[in-house]
Design a protein around this nucleic acid. Structure first.
Lengths: 176, 176
DNA sequence: ACTGAAAACAGTTCATT
DNA sequence: AATGAACTGTTTTCAGT
């Protein structure tokens, strides 16, 4: 069989790490068919380039925040970016998405109690400049959570990432 | 100063790991003021009890799925659970939430192209039993992503977790 | 890709509470 | 009984060739 392309080596390293994030480089090297050193160098590169990230993920409930809520926010014209930055700076808010549709922003937060959530919503979110309308949606159950990471976090603009050229779109079994 | 309670030791270990998930046990032990062995034993316990999880998180774009979409789904009465299970079984779908409000389910997926998303939406999601209405919302930008983990993944019922008793709700500065 | 030194890890025992 | 600390052999990591 033909040998893997460089990007496919990277992807198989990532796929194995998703399955077991804490395996040793030696074990990983055996699975992907490279030496330990190669795997380590590739991993370091993938991390610095931002294509792979490691996370320690606590149970929000264990950390004292069992109430999981999603806020849909309609912003005043032109205020969206500023509002996103404000929300992103709030410790209660863990995720902030700029989205299409009726609402412009979706923000997700974890709270100590439903009362803490209500207080945040009415007293803090409601008073932010640029919020025209907001709805809260409580998460009752998380049925699936397969973490993926969007590279665009904290990325300001429109750079042209190197991997763009390599994106083969064949990965899914495909569609187009 | 009084010494930390056991649960506070656990929480400080978790907080340090969130900051740097790949630090060594030795470094972590120094930060939280425990021996390496104690830290290792506590971490193992936290992981098996499900209060701490590690993840390797790839850039979805690098893996060939740059299109990030959220589906809001209204299900037929009584069909919600079954529908959630079906969605959770689909590889294109990474997150499935059971929520309150007009829609019952929010599902999040990563796709190879907007066309692949459209195809999934119209041909696969639209044909599922129990889907009364669905909307798609495209994610334009992820402005913040601070991973937290809901313990209820893959948990079937209503067990009474040990940590429930210890939850002091004082963690946030507080509210009640 | 291989080698060797330094570091971290896993397992055990002992003392403390 | 459960936890923390100290000691020891083994494995992993990492830099240099």
């Amino acid at each position: 069989m033909a040998s893997k392309s460089s990007i496919e080596k990277d992807r198989s390293i990532i796929r194995e790490l998703v399955k077991d994030p804490r395996q040793t480089n030696v074990a990983l090297a055996a699975k992907v068919g490279l030496s330990e050193g190669s795997v380590r160098r590739r991993m370091e590169r993938l991390i610095t380039e931002g294509q792979l990230q490691f996370a320690a993920i606590p149970s929000a409930a264990f950390m004292g925040r069992p109430v999981h809520t999603l806020f849909e926010i309609q912003s005043a014209p032109g205020a969206t970016e500023q509002l996103i930055d404000k929300l992103a700076g709030m410790p209660e808010i863990s995720y902030v998405y700029h989205v299409t549709g009726q609402f412009d922003i979706i923000a997700v937060g974890y709270f100590a109690s439903s009362n803490a959530m209500r207080q945040f919503w009415t007293e803090r979110l409601g008073h932010l400049d640029g919020v025209m309308e907001s709805r809260s949606v409580m998460v009752l159950r998380v049925a699936k959570r397969a973490h993926e990471w969007a590279r665009d976090i904290a990325v300001t603009g429109d750079e042209d990432p190197a991997w763009e050229a390599d994106r083969e779109l064949g990965v899914l079994g495909s569609t187009t």
